[in-house]
Amino acid sequence: MTDNCWNQIGVCGDRSCLELKTFVHCRNCPVYSTSGRNLLEREAPSGYLQEWTNLLAQKDEKIDARSDRSTVLAIVFRLGREWLALRASVFKEVTRPCIVRTLPHRSNEILLGIANIHGEIIPCISLSKFLGIESPKEAVQVNRETRKIDSYSKNIKSLISIETKQYERTIVLEKESKIWMFQVDEVSQTYRCCQDEIQELTVTTHNLTNSYIKGIFNLKDRKVSYLNDDLLFDALDRKLF
């Protein structure tokens, strides 16, 4: 029996091996498993350990160099035409849109009501209203290859609306036992950026409520507003409760 009989007379060969009637497939055969065990238990070739030690050491140096630049891990999401980001550490959950129940005499444009998330009652807000983001009159079209809409359709506006709703998500934030949730039009990605990538905000670069924005950074062809979660949580507590 050869060392690689499975490639010659086994399932990867001409299937003439008589043992196939018993084991059906080579992976069930003791010859195959013994060969695999011998492969894993063989001695490392000369210089193998040193080579990997050098490679891992180089990788650690790159990580340390990036850490020295004080990186920030943020989650990027969209409200209308605005791209925003918050520290990933304050995200408790990202889920599909859920039913929001209004509160008698308390619900308004910002405090929409409460929702049940896994048995926990959480206040739901309109972050777009809170930040002063105006909802566009027409559905927002985002550059995504997956959004292909028939331009000849008579009901193109309704089709855009349906496609856009597929990306809507509910974000649940938690910080120091304070929990809030809000709906966004899309959650894009988790992004690690360096502090020096975040540009200082100027009056002419943005039209949002600047009080809650630390700065902006570029992500591909977008300008993303990096929100100050400390100010955001404090303001929500003061203004809504």
Rank of each mutant, 00 (worst) to 15 (best):
H118T: 08
E163A: 12
I198C: 01
G113I: 01
I213F: 02
V172E: 01
P136F: 11
S158G: 10
L201Y: 06
C194A: 12
I125H: 00
K154H: 10
I179Q: 14
T164H: 09
S107D: 03
Q195R: 15
S128A: 15
V187H: 05
E120Y: 05
N155G: 02
K220D: 13
Q195C: 15
V184E: 03
V187C: 08
P123W: 02
I213Q: 04
R192F: 09
G132H: 06
D230A: 09
G113Q: 02
K157W: 09
I125K: 00
L231E: 03
T209G: 03
L236E: 00
K175Q: 13
T190C: 13
R238V: 12
E145G: 10
V184F: 02
E197M: 12
S211P: 00
K148T: 10
R238M: 13
I162M: 11
Q199M: 07
G132T: 07
E120G: 02
E168H: 11
L231W: 06
L173M: 10
L127F: 07
A115K: 08
G119A: 01
L159N: 09
D234R: 03
D229G: 04
Y226W: 07
K129N: 15
L236K: 00
L127I: 10
K223S: 13
F217A: 04
V187Y: 10
K175I: 08
C193K: 08
Y212S: 01
E134F: 03
L201P: 07
V187L: 04
D234P: 00
S177H: 11
F130M: 12
I156Y: 06
S225W: 00
C193I: 15
N108A: 05
F182E: 06
D150W: 08
N207S: 15
T190A: 13
V142K: 13
L159M: 12
L112V: 09
V203G: 09
E120D: 11
C194I: 09
M181D: 04
I198G: 04
G113D: 01
S128P: 05
A115D: 14
S126E: 11
T204W: 10
R106F: 08
R192A: 14
Q199R: 13
I171R: 01
E120K: 13
A115G: 13
S161T: 11
V172R: 00
G119N: 04
L231I: 01
D185S: 13
L232V: 03
T209L: 07
T146K: 12
R144Y: 04
I198Q: 08
N207M: 14
Y167M: 12
E174L: 06
P123L: 09
S158I: 02
L173D: 02
L236I: 04
V203H: 14
K165W: 06
E176T: 06
T204S: 14
T190Q: 12
S151Y: 13
